[in-house]
Simulated assay, not measured.
Amino acid sequence: MKLDKIDIKILTHLQSNARMTNAELAERVGLSPTPCLRRLRRLETEGVIKGYRTDVDRDVLGLPVTVIILVKLEKEDEVALRAFEQTISQRSEVMECHLVTGKFDYFLRVVLPTLTAYESFLSESLLRTENIASIESSFTLREVLRRPVLPMNH
């Protein structure tokens, strides 16, 4: 799908505030409300906009521990990759899972309430997953930067 300047403006504004009304959005992008809503629905239908979410403070929810986990599999064929991905996708603690290049096969970002919860996640889940050759974990000390808005000026 080819995005024009108006589509880019719509996406830029919605990434910053997805709760704005269609009338506000239309005014900001220089359209009347009806054509703006039509464009918005097209962006949703064509899968450019995948959904709307709320950015929640994990500390307030009691999830202050973030762990970056690098996983190396013993076998890296398609069946093994899919099996690992299926297993890991069932764990709500796993916020991100990326198949990556390099020494490891997967990059995970996991959020947990305590170090004890991490130990349980590791011993009761990850280490019991078939086909794991090695795991390397790093605990984040502080979130320096997290951009919820994708760059639209490329």
Rank of each mutant, 00 (worst) to 15 (best):
S125Q: 10
E27K: 11
L112A: 01
V48H: 03
V111T: 13
K2L: 15
G62E: 10
K9E: 12
R82H: 12
R28F: 01
S134Y: 00
I132L: 01
L3T: 08
R142A: 07
D59Y: 04
T101Q: 11
A117G: 12
N131V: 01
L73K: 13
S120Q: 14
K75V: 15
L3D: 06
V149Y: 00
V149C: 00
A26N: 05
H13G: 11
L37V: 12
D57W: 08
L40M: 03
I6N: 11
T12W: 06
H13K: 15
L126E: 06
R58T: 15
V56N: 04
S134E: 00
R147F: 00
L122N: 10
I8H: 08
V29R: 00
F104C: 01
T101Y: 13
L112H: 02
V71K: 00
V100H: 01
K75G: 05
V79N: 11
E74R: 15
E27R: 11
E130H: 03
G51V: 02
E85W: 06
R109G: 07
E93N: 10
T87V: 14
P35N: 03
T114R: 06
E44S: 01
K5A: 11
L115S: 07
S92I: 06
D77S: 07
T45M: 09
R38N: 08
D7L: 04
L43N: 04
V48W: 02
R41F: 01
E143G: 05
E93A: 10
R28S: 01
C36F: 11
Q90V: 08
K103F: 14
N131L: 03
S16N: 15
M152T: 14
H98D: 10
